[in-house]
Design a protein around this nucleic acid. Structure first.
Lengths: 144, 144
DNA sequence: CTAGGACTTCGAGCGCACTCTAAGTCAAGG
DNA sequence: CCTTGACTTAGAGTGCGCTCGAAGTCCTAG
């Protein structure tokens, strides 16, 4: 129904990437037409869209492969797939939390550069890193 | 006051990475002691901590370098630095928003794998990708 | 005096995820 | 018939951000 060029246009991936994904197993092996050219149907777009979300959220390719493999194995792999997704979801949540903490710091630092005003001299403060670095501690908003 | 090994321990970076960062300009050229060994003082830890946050939030090294260069140039670069950080902040915010949208999809998909129950057959639905992929549209929760 | 360990520089190697090239096949249009 | 251009394959190359190795110097403890 759809050759690689059209799929590329519609999915936003390059034809090169589509072949690469097939090669490594992210996309199922596509059926070929009488000229050995890949022939896709609409349904592949749904999978590509989901793939993109997994990648956007930082799932490493080997984990996506694991998921894709389970999917290709068909039914009975539901609970494993769910476990995979749940684990990933937790990681994404943690990452969002971390980013939000960084945003708070960033806001403070930007506020420190108020106006175009600058009263430099900085990146000093004993602050021995309280064992664990991340950001729930009492604010330190230096100008670095 | 502090040699590279101790800084490595206290910052969580490897000594190799610290030298690498200095080489590429992420860390200021460190003063050496009488044996040409790097000698750091506490203040560097503050900068490393901020560096880590920029990296956590996905700022590419060349942008961090730009910021570090401004910083090294000293005062009068405040407004440029602020602009850099503001731009980055917006990117981080956008990214967080995107991740949250993905989380919604992920939640829906996980809910679809309710229990260990599975009523397979999937990744089908015409769904021509509504031009922009992301996720504010009416839900589509396929099992892929 | 000697051995150990931490340091120095330079540069090669790695893992990831593409991205592109080369050389060739094929089908449709002028 | 012949060109055009989208496709095919295998495999090389790229950019990022480290990460490690080799070979050598230097301080310290036994």
């Amino acid at each position: 129904m759809m050759k690689i060029g059209e799929l590329a246009r519609r999915s936003g991936l390059s034809a090169h990437s589509i072949r690469y994904y097939e090669r490594i197993g992210l996309l199922p092996y596509a059926g070929r037409d009488q000229s050995r050219q890949r022939d896709y149907d609409e349904s592949i777009l749904v999978w590509i869209e989901f793939l993109r979300r997994l990648k956007t959220t930082g799932m490493p390719i080997r984990d996506i492969l694991r998921y894709a493999a389970l999917r290709a194995q068909g039914p009975n792999t539901g609970s494993e797939r769910r476990a995979l997704l749940e684990q990933h979801r937790q990681q994404v949540r943690d990452h969002v939390t971390e980013l939000q903490a960084c945003l708070v710091i960033l806001d403070a630092k930007i506020a420190g550069y108020a106006g175009s005003d600058h009263k430099e001299k900085n990146h000093d403060r004993p602050q021995p890193l309280p064992a664990k670095p991340p950001g729930a501690g009492p604010s330190r908003l230096g100008r670095d």
